[in-house]
Design a protein around this nucleic acid. Structure first.
Length: 620
RNA sequence: CGGGGUGUAGCUCAGUCUGGCUUAGAGCGCUUGGUUCGGGACCAAGAGGUCGCAGGUUCGAAUCCUGUCACCCCGACCA
């Protein structure tokens, strides 16, 4: 490919609105152009990268035995009614109402395809003999993302590989889950990503396994906890630390202390002379009676966020909670130096909780906000949820349920119950930097930001049951299909790769997803000998099957070098009068030092070998 | 959805507070000619803008007012 005839609109200027490195570089290198909020055109260079990623994904999915198909972007609203997600995903589903045609109101742009694939399964997968089967597609998704950001990391339209497997038993699903997990490892390794598989939250689905594939970078939106020795990694939403040890100090009697205007932990501690870890935070929540809402959607669960196929929300049973819903009062306790994890809290409560307003808190405790404590509340509330780290405290301090007073010498079990109908002791806090790994090694956990690039999920029968997708087992009995879903955000792979591999000058592409593998740079295109040598190298590389770009532009050397660094093609062959005089051409690797001179006769062979070596290394 | 901010040339921005001194500007990019030529060159001459849009105030609006749209940032939300 001759640069002169190609289209690579690079810029020197850094775009105003871009902060993430990948965003800045994708714009500057001429990979993408924003058309609207969260909507991007992939320019030729960016499109080539995307296609390379697509190819890796396709090859590995095929190799893993999955079968490719293509489902539509336009999907009938009625299917989303069947699953209940037309109600639970209202702000995610992009509807076509407002259109002038009546029929358009019945269509939505698919944010994921659980419903669609389940409809297909319902129609065709009628016998256990057809199982297991794994169907996948690489298709655009549309989501009513409230706030697109970070370039291509969070968009309203994106490319996702979503796969859905169907099984007649759990062991079969487990096996395919492991198979997909392994395929994902190969995909991300081949893409050159420093990825990490972490335990992910399963939301309202409960119990079943789910893993997210993360790339640790500064630009991500997700937080993960990773142990220093690598024995544990989990999404912060679900990460847990080793359980606490029982406190041993002898219990002191409770004592009321005047703490005027000191309602916050950081205000009270100096007054009481206690560290935050000896404090009990008393948080008051309300909830409406009924089942818990679904958990958080994952971005890459196909159904959820950008990467995973379809772990969508399944609606709560609309019949539950009809009539006169009663407001429940729930009190949660966490240590003063800990943050509560509302996802864990909701699961422990079996309800979706909301922080109570000040009026409710004052009515319950008889004190202003900031002075609540667990003592004596149990008879006036519906549930007391105690973090397990609070349960082992000795001689802690809490609010006194009396404005401007706290109590010291508070002891769980004596001053508030640790058991009983209304009491739950559970892990309801977010792990903190330095907490011990739950594996028993005690290795300290570190908190990192990350980009979610993939998600594997055991769905179970959520959608098959909702849509009536049943097969007949060996006994002729109709059973709902057991499903798994597996998503990968292709655009995010590009952004994550750039986040992980760049320097001040530009992108440093992994060989496997680089738009071109080799750049031949002719320094003086008006010099006949330079052009003859450069053209010959380009042509021979191309003939050898190498993706090669030929910078034949009549520009100054510095200009072309800067562009080369920016677009980040891994191998660069520089042909100039100077190098020819020195006996050949220069070969450099992007991001590495040194520019050895090679003879034009051997450079093609050596470059081809280097490309293949690099690709093989990634595929290992 | 809450809070904040920005819309002026393809890009990055000045001018807006204090309406008229601008025939709407600069740099980058683009066109033409010349010089230069191994790390984003220089000189000269050009092309390019309904100042987001709609109303209003005024003798006069990029500038003031009202509305509206778009985009960005923080937060919320994100089976």
């Amino acid at each position: 490919m001759h640069w002169r005839n190609y289209f690579i609109p690079t810029t020197k200027e850094t775009p105003k609105d871009a902060t993430a490195a990948s965003h800045v570089l994708m714009l500057r290198a001429g990979l993408i152009r924003q058309l609207a909020a969260g909507v991007y055109t992939y320019l030729p260079l960016g499109f080539r990268c995307l296609r390379k990623v697509e190819r890796i994904v396709r090859e590995e999915m095929d190799r893993a035995g999955a079968i490719e198909l293509r489902m539509p972007c336009l999907t009938p609203l009625s299917l989303w009614d069947e699953s209940g997600r037309s109600r639970t995903m209202t702000d995610v589903l992009l509807r076509l109402d407002g259109a002038v045609w009546d029929w358009a109101a019945g269509l939505v742009l698919g944010p994921t395809h659980e419903e669609i694939i389940t409809e297909l399964a319902r129609a065709y997968l009628k016998s256990y003999k057809q199982l297991p089967i794994n169907l996948y597609q690489i298709q655009l998704k549309f989501r009513g993302e409230a706030r697109p950001k970070s370039g291509v990391l969070r968009t309203r339209e994106f490319l996702m590989k979503d796969a859905y497997s169907f099984h007649d038993c759990k062991p079969s699903l487990d096996k395919e889950y492991d198979n997909m997990y392994a395929a994902y490892c190969r995909i991300f390794a081949r893409s050159g990503l420093p990825y990490l598989a972490v335990e992910a939250d399963t939301g309202a689905m409960g119990g079943d396994a789910s893993h997210e594939f993360m790339v640790l970078t500064d630009a991500g939106e997700d937080r993960v906890a990773v142990s220093a020795n690598g024995d544990y990694a989990a999404n912060l939403e679900r990460a847990t630390a080793a359980p606490p040890r029982e406190g041993e100090a002898p219990a002191e009697p409770p004592r009321e202390v005047h703490t005027p205007n000191a309602g916050r932990i950081d205000e009270v501690c100096p007054v009481l002379g206690l560290p935050p870890r000896q404090m009990i935070k008393t948080l008051i929540y309300t909830a409406t009676e009924g089942p818990a809402a679904a958990g958080a959607a994952r971005n890459l669960a196909p159904g959820a966020g950008n990467v995973a196929p379809g772990a969508g929300n399944v609606a709560a049973d609309p019949r539950v909670g009809r009539g006169a819903p009663r407001k429940l009062r729930i009190v949660a306790l966490v240590r003063g130096d800990h943050e509560i994890n509302e996802l864990k809290l909701n699961r422990a409560a079996g309800l979706t909780l909301e922080l109570a307003d000040p009026e409710t808190i004052e009515a319950l405790t008889g004190a202003k906000v900031g002075f609540a404590g667990p003592q004596g509340l149990i008879d006036r509330i519906d549930k007391l949820i105690i973090d397990r780290e609070v349960a082992v405290l000795r001689n802690a301090a809490s609010g006194a349920n009396k404005t401007d007073y706290h109590v010291t010498g508070v002891n769980p079990g004596r001053d508030f119950p640790l058991s009983g109908d209304k009491v739950v002791v559970a892990d309801i806090r977010t792990v903190a930097e330095g907490d011990p790994s739950p594996t028993g090694s005690g290795s300290p956990l570190h908190l990192r930001t990350a980009i979610e690039v993939g998600h594997v999920f055991k769905l179970g029968t959520k959608y098959s049951a909702a849509l009536g997708a049943v097969y007949l087992d060996q006994n002729g009995k109709a059973c709902p299909l057991i499903m798994g879903c597996y998503g990968i955000g292709l655009n995010r792979i590009l952004a994550a790769a750039i986040e992980a591999h760049h320097d001040d000058a530009g992108i440093i592409w992994p060989m496997s997803i680089a738009p071109f593998e080799v750049l031949v740079l002719a320094l003086d295109p008006r010099d006949e000998e330079v052009m003859r040598v450069a053209t010959q190298i380009h042509d021979e590389l191309a003939a050898a099957g190498i993706d090669v770009l030929f910078d034949d532009r009549d520009e100054r050397a510095g200009f072309k070098f800067k562009d080369a660094d920016l677009i980040g093609i891994p191998l660069r062959v520089v042909v100039g009068k100077k190098s020819l005089t020195a006996g050949g051409v220069e070969v450099t690797e992007r991001g590495k030092e040194g520019k050895p001179i090679m003879s034009p006769a051997s450079v093609v062979e050596q470059t081809v070998r280097r490309v293949r070596e690099e690709l093989a290394k990634l595929a290992r």
